[in-house]
Amino acid sequence: MATPTMDKVAADDAAAASHLITVTFRIRRFNPEVSAEATWEDFQLEIDPKERVLDGLHKIKWELDGSLTFRRSCAHGICGSDAMRINGKNRLACKTLIKDINPAKPITVEPIKGLTVLKDLVVDMEPFFQAYRDVMPFLVTTGNEPTRERLQSAEDRERFDDTTKCILCAACTSSCPVFWNDGQYFGPAAIVNAHRFIFDSRDEAGEQRLEILNDKDGVWRCRTTFNCTDACPRGIEVTKAIQEVKRALITRRY
């Protein structure tokens, strides 16, 4: 009785093992407690190509080098903590399958650019969230609070549907060449979240937000390079949203 069962398990193991491929992860390491220099470090691991880059990072952290530092929380593309530069492109490690990014070559993993690297893949997100706070990303209304919910037509909801999808992962802002050189620029993510309220029929501070984005470091610094649209893991048309804010600035006033 026991023998056939074990045979079956062994056969299953062999079948499972044949799925695995050897992948090299080339990770940008920085540890200020050891050295002032950031260096590339290669890790080789056996992994199923249908697994994600985040699974590879977990394997490295749990089995090869526990000092590897990165952010992740939900691991399913909702919390937006594991945006990183994978093979030179900003992506979420938890939404990138290894088979989709050519595992035959080393997979490079770097922290996102334009923000201060604190350790390995962890960056200081404070300037990013400061820009987010500066556009007042909350509902502003006047008058008495209604006793029931604030109603809105389906068309009015549709107007800003795209920009409600933002998860604040910073993939767009840290892919923006203007932001790389000048962190005073609001960056795509802050403008997307302003767009979400500017075009919300229930909100009453649209004019105030437009005034904020009309400033020297606001929407007019956008060079429409479309890096943000390419980088967005949620498929938000970021550049389009920025252009809509520009258009609103011109057409709502003149």
Partner: peptide
Amino acid sequence: YDADNPAPVIEAPRKRT
């Protein structure tokens, strides 16, 4: 460098505060 005396990090240019 060690834990009590870490290396300086490279600040992003013109950070927003």
